[in-house]
Design a protein around this nucleic acid. Structure first.
Lengths: 223, 223
DNA sequence: ACGCCTGGATTGTAGGACAATATCATCGCC
DNA sequence: GGCGATGATATTGTCCTACAATCCAGGCGT
């Protein structure tokens, strides 16, 4: 049961809750805690050597993020996304990221565009990627698009679409071929955005997400 | 400072937090607590006669909902939406509710369609509305569309679009004429959905929201 | 077998205490 | 007299202990 974080440096005052949230989030997204695993307050107080207050607060934050599910008097468990959840989330992502791609392509500020071009430079690297590297690259890319789009509410909302959680659930099945295809799609999106082609950017983003959704659902139904 | 809820019946065990959240939400949405007002833990413990635990938990839930803003070591204040916030939120609503209208129009289940028709019956009432009645009717209508669309994640997300908060901030300026127009737009959306016309439903919903956004922003900039 | 009931595990809430931090008013210095 | 340092106050962050309420499982009698 050693979760690799028992003996970490005690964080400064005011950072206790954030620290617990971070550790638990890492554990969930890295599958050290499997979906359905119970998170028991007394165990967590022992593991992090803090009182129940911060533990309860951390659990509430994770619940608000959607990473864990909470039942009254029965505690929290790591959330498991159903195939339906994943399908519905991708349907929403299609609209929201499609919008983000459009706004990003329309963005006029030269400085922002410069930063964007800089942030996504890595996707033009031709070297094959490891699955975990691609996961980070993918998250960064979608973040960069959202940022260039300039809609803060959209950025906030994208956190609720649980992309990391989906990836944690289906990401293990990523093959080199799928990775290569995804990178190519990212480049197509990036080119349309840099060419200030809103319709093209939207279309490329939607195509990318439709393929990703199909892949995720196929993987999910294999179980 | 009597917030009208001090002496309410103490809720059953396990409902304390929910009770506090409800009361504060009501106070915020009814403008009994103005944007920027501070929510101080010690005041709330006194007002509701509970300990700090449930109060802190309630504040956290309201923060997760986006109704209050939270600063470290400085406490919580009632959130004030800027014109930019409102504009961005409507841009997102346009996409999400447009999608919901489309899916609702495509929904095949006869029983669900029946329930929808029943839930929105009130919008075909020709009597003029009071502003507060329209607010409830509007929320119910959009909820009903979301429900018929059958995407649960979409329903969850719609809570984060802060329609009630926006309405609380600009709703005071609703004139009878604006109300009448909105009701007509609702009917157009409903008709397209019941006629199973996805494109028409999406277009009608987007038109409705574009007008509402323009109205809200105009009102907001008057200050 | 079936349902009741008891007991352990776990969460929900109370209340008090202290440390850390922010806020604000006052005071001294230039 | 204005401006920065200093201290008092208010408020939040965390810890501790205790108890009530609830859920779950397993034993009991019928």
């Amino acid at each position: 049961m050693d979760q690799s974080s028992t003996a970490s440096p005690p964080p400064a005052h005011g950072a206790t809750v954030a620290h617990i949230v971070e550790r638990l989030r890492e554990d969930i997204l890295a599958h050290r805690l499997s979906p359905g695993a119970r998170l028991i307050e007394s165990e967590l107080t022992a593991r992090f050597d803090v009182s129940r207050g911060p533990v309860r607060e951390a659990l509430r934050r994770l619940a608000a993020e959607g990473l864990i599910a909470h039942a009254p008097n029965r505690g929290a468990v790591v959330r498991r996304l159903t195939a339906r959840d994943i399908s519905e989330l991708f349907e929403i992502r299609l609209e929201l990221e499609g919008l983000a791609a459009r706004r990003a392509a329309e963005a006029g500020d030269a400085c922002e565009r410069e930063r964007f071009a800089d942030a996504i430079r890595v996707i033009f690297d031709d070297a094959p990627r490891l699955a975990c590297d691609y996961l980070a690259e993918n998250a960064d890319f979608h973040d960069a698009v959202m940022r260039l789009a300039g809609n803060r509410q959209l950025q906030d909302l994208s956190m609720r679409l649980h992309l990391p959680l989906i990836m944690a659930q289906v990401g293990a099945a990523l093959t080199a071929e799928v990775l290569r295809l995804s990178v190519l799609e990212h480049r197509a999106i990036a080119k349309a955005i840099l060419a200030q082609d809103p319709n093209g950017a939207t279309a490329a983003m939607r195509a990318h997400l439709e393929r990703a959704a199909a892949f995720a659902l196929a993987r999910e139904e294999e179980e």
